[in-house]
Design a protein around this nucleic acid. Structure first.
Length: 506
RNA sequence: GGUCUGGUGGCCGAGUGGCUAGGCUCAGCUCUGCAAAAGCUGCUACAGCGGUUCGAAUCCGCUCCAGACCUCCA
């Protein structure tokens, strides 16, 4: 699925009803792109100094669904998600050292080796969870020149100053003519007392000021020449630079995790306005909420984060068993992105069972036989309208999933011969699953082992089921049950239906 | 201390001024050789206290509780 395959330039009639929860206004607003049918979307990507955990995955999944839905509606979306490969100060030591650089020294690796390793890991994880790659995935180190240019502009406009080779954003000065703190609801005077002593604090005119450029000391492995010093860019700057470069000074959607709202996103706005003028750079700010574990935020520092590998294998002290990536994807989509979601074994198991039922019905859909004489079928068009209504209501995936379960009941009833549908009805159901379950939610059947050998497996199973049916016909229950029990042990479920026996893999 | 979010049935999790969320679990029923699957039914829900209203879980106020952010974090 990509934007070029959508109907040429035609927007779905449902597109006009899309509403987004805008963090900036704190209200649900109707989505009106700046320049339809084009949509620009920027999402803060990972800092590649360690493996991503599930909390990170949740955010990228959230915006994956946003991306998929916008494309489905017919928008031409340019989705930019950056890779932060330089620029974040370390928090625990307060020495202002670059995270990537620090990690590199510890492991005796080149900084870019670290970056590459964890970028690869990140991409692997995205693939496992079926999260689509963005249109552009720019890196901070690839945009040093642009970052320097933006700093120069901000200085030129009087909102930044140089001190001892470093450059700081002048928050007080900016706040005289702009609303600093609008996004996060923070008031500048209250922030004043809260900042604690960071490196270079003495160079700042005000504790609130944040770094645009930092002079590198001898311990730094990553540094670049600039008009001010040999150094590195501040950690808010890259997103301002790259969003502007690829999406323009005004663009539609900016996404990221809730924890980036302040200071990161607030600083981004200040930088954009400081460089380009007073217009809001972003029309709709979307913030995904945190994934919690036993009520606590999952984070690197808490040590309560699962890596995807631990999750799949179940090899973690908080996990009772392993869960497939699709189960986790489905689990996350059963909650709304703007609310916290608690990760627990019972919840995962519920999602696993629920997904199985959904997928089971979806599988049956392929073989459903139409019946033209069918009596009044359920109103399947209404089902589709409800699906759109759910997504249009700020991407309400849990409600969409509830709609899909209504479809599951119809499918199962038809498959069991309790209900009949004409061809049109079946097509409507198929389109519903194909559009909403597959394209928009990104759910797909997980193939069990032995992939690529499907025909032979089918043939073998057919033989086995035939033998068992004969045993049943002869009332040879012992043989029939033996076959079933042995298959169950092997992870093959036997289901006796009215029209014969079907089977599924675990 | 400041800013903000949330407290929904056994569990997870939507939603809303009056109309079934949904999933999972559990119990019963239908179907079935049995089981599984599937379908149906049920499992007394909206933190507490006030207020507004014909009517509030949904709006307002207060209280309690939890979490996030204020410092790197999706």
């Amino acid at each position: 699925m990509d934007s070029t395959t959508t109907a040429a330039g035609t927007l779905s009639p449902f597109a006009k009803d899309l509403h987004l929860g805008n963090s900036l206004s704190r209200e649900k607003e109707r989505f009106e792109p700046y320049n339809p049918p084009y949509v620009g979307m920027y999402v803060c990507g990972p800092t590649v100094y360690s493996n991503v955990h599930l909390g990170n995955v949740r955010t990228f999944l959230t915006f994956d669904v946003v991306y998929r839905y916008l494309i489905h509606l017919g928008y031409k979306v340019r989705y930019v998600r950056n890779i932060t490969d330089v620029g974040h100060l370390t928090g625990d030591t307060d020495d202002g050292e670059d995270k990537i650089g620090k990690k590199a020294r510890l492991e005796n690796l080149e900084p870019m080796e670290v970056v590459q390793r964890y970028t690869n890991d990140f991409h692997d994880v995205m693939r496992v969870f079926r999260i689509l790659p963005p249109s552009i995935e720019p890196t901070a180190t690839g945009h040093i020149v642009e970052q320097i240019a933006m700093i120069e502009k901000i200085i030129e406009n009087g909102f930044a100053y140089e001190a001892n080779g470093s450059v700081y954003f002048d928050v007080r000065k900016f706040a005289e003519s702009h609303h600093y703190g609008e996004l996060s609801g923070r008031k500048i005077d209250e922030l004043q007392n809260q900042t604690r002593a960071l490196d270079g604090q003495d160079e700042k005119r005000d504790p609130l000021d944040f770094a645009l450029w930092k002079k590198a000391d001898a311990s730094h492995l990553m540094h670049w020449p600039s008009p001010w010093s040999e150094g590195f860019p501040g950690w808010h700057l890259e997103c301002s630079v790259m969003s502007t470069k690829y999406l323009g000074r005004t663009f539609d959607i900016h996404g990221g995790g809730m924890d980036l709202k302040f200071p990161h996103h607030e600083c981004e706005i200040a930088q954009n306005m400081g460089a380009h003028g007073p217009e809001q750079p972003v029309r709709y700010w979307l913030h995904g909420n945190m994934l919690t574990v036993n009520g606590r935020k999952m984070s690197k520092s808490e040590g309560n984060g699962f890596t995807p590998e631990e999750l799949i294998t179940g090899n973690h002290k908080l996990l009772e068993k392993g869960y497939s990536p699709m189960t986790v994807r489905f689990f996350m989509l059963q909650g709304h992105y703007a609310g916290t979601l608690d990760f627990s074994n019972p919840a995962l198991q519920a999602a696993e069972k629920g997904l199985e039922r959904l997928m089971g019905a979806w599988g049956l859909l392929a073989d459903l036989k139409p019946c033209e004489s069918g009596e009044a079928a359920p109103d399947l068009a209404a089902l589709r309208a409800r699906a759109y209504a759910a997504m249009n209501d700020d991407f309400n995936t849990p409600v969409l999933i509830a709609v899909l379960y209504d479809a599951v009941k119809v499918v199962n009833s038809v498959a069991a011969g309790r209900m009949v549908l004409n061809a049109e009805g079946i097509d409507t159901l198929r389109a519903l699953f194909s559009d909403f379950a597959a394209d928009i939610l990104g759910l797909e059947q997980e193939v069990a082992g032995g992939a690529g050998d499907g025909d032979r497996t089918d043939g073998l199973m057919e033989v086995i089921c035939t033998l068992r049916s004969e045993a049943k016909a002869n009332k040879d229950w012992a043989t029939a049950d033996l076959i079933r029990d042995r298959l169950t042990e092997l992870g093959v479920q036997i289901k006796d239906g009215k029209d014969g026996t079907s089977w599924t893999f675990d």
